[in-house]
């Protein structure tokens, strides 16, 4: 077991100050709270460096040991180092830097994002197979929603867009709000446990989520 006393104490003090600042209007408290939040931003910036270091370490090792598909790791290393060097030498607002981003990264990104359409279709096909009452309700709601959002729905039945709109506004919103209220209460409970040091899984130490048999 490792010593987690100091991180817990830091969590309690920082979290307590920020929480108090949410409720109480006091100039020193505001200053202290903002200072803590600025520290958070600085620590986050360091974490980005750690992430890049992890990428370099893993892919350099893969390339060095010639593991399966090692050339992908090699390409990643070349791009990572080359693009960082370009940003440092030419600045991130330079035309060369922007060219790589706009003409290589953006189209690739859009391509990957467009997979979503196919993934949604295959997931919907599985989910809508009428095997249970829940799946039937899902199928009927989805059919009404889809028909209400396309022109043919209105041609078939003039109130179809209204039905789709009602499903979206009333039962869906009611369900979403119920989930949101429950999640908010859950988040308060978890935050309370983190602030009081009862939940410690984030330190990798004892407590929290350690119920594996």
């Amino acid at each position: 077991m490792k010593f987690t006393g100091v991180p817990i104490l830091v969590t309690m003090v920082v979290g307590g100050v920020v929480l108090l600042d949410f409720f109480v209007k006091q100039s020193n408290l505001i200053l202290l709270s903002r200072e803590f939040m600025n520290w958070g931003v600085i620590i986050s910036a360091f974490a980005t460096g750690l992430g890049a270091a992890n990428l370099l370490r893993i892919h350099a090792k893969r390339t060095q040991l010639r593991r399966t598909d090692w050339w992908y790791s090699g390409i990643l290393l070349c791009v990572l180092v080359g693009y960082t060097a370009l940003g440092v030498l030419k600045h991130s607002s330079s035309s060369q830097y922007q060219f790589v981003f706009n003409h290589m990264f953006q189209p690739l990104s859009a391509t990957v994002f467009s997979f979503n359409a196919f993934f949604m279709t295959s997931a919907a096909y599985r989910a809508f197979r009428v095997r249970t009452v829940h799946a039937t309700v899902l199928l009927v709601s989805a059919l009404l929603m889809m028909l209400g959002r396309v022109g043919i729905g209105e041609v078939l039945y003039k109130d179809m867009p209204g039905i789709a709109s009602w499903i979206s506004r009333v039962p869906t919103t009611a369900g979403f709000r119920g989930i949101t209220i429950g999640a908010a209460l859950g988040a308060i409970g978890l935050s309370l446990r983190v602030l009081t040091g009862i939940e410690r899984s984030q330190f990798g130490g004892t407590g929290g989520g350690g119920g594996a048999a």
Binding site: I198, E199, G207
Partner: peptide
């Protein structure tokens, strides 16, 4: 769904304060 992810550690560990939170 929603709150169930926050209840996980309490559900799995069943420590008094975690149960109190639930």
């Amino acid at each position: 769904i929603g709150e169930e992810i926050f209840a996980a550690s309490a559900y799995l560990e069943r420590q008094p304060v975690q149960i109190g939170c639930l």
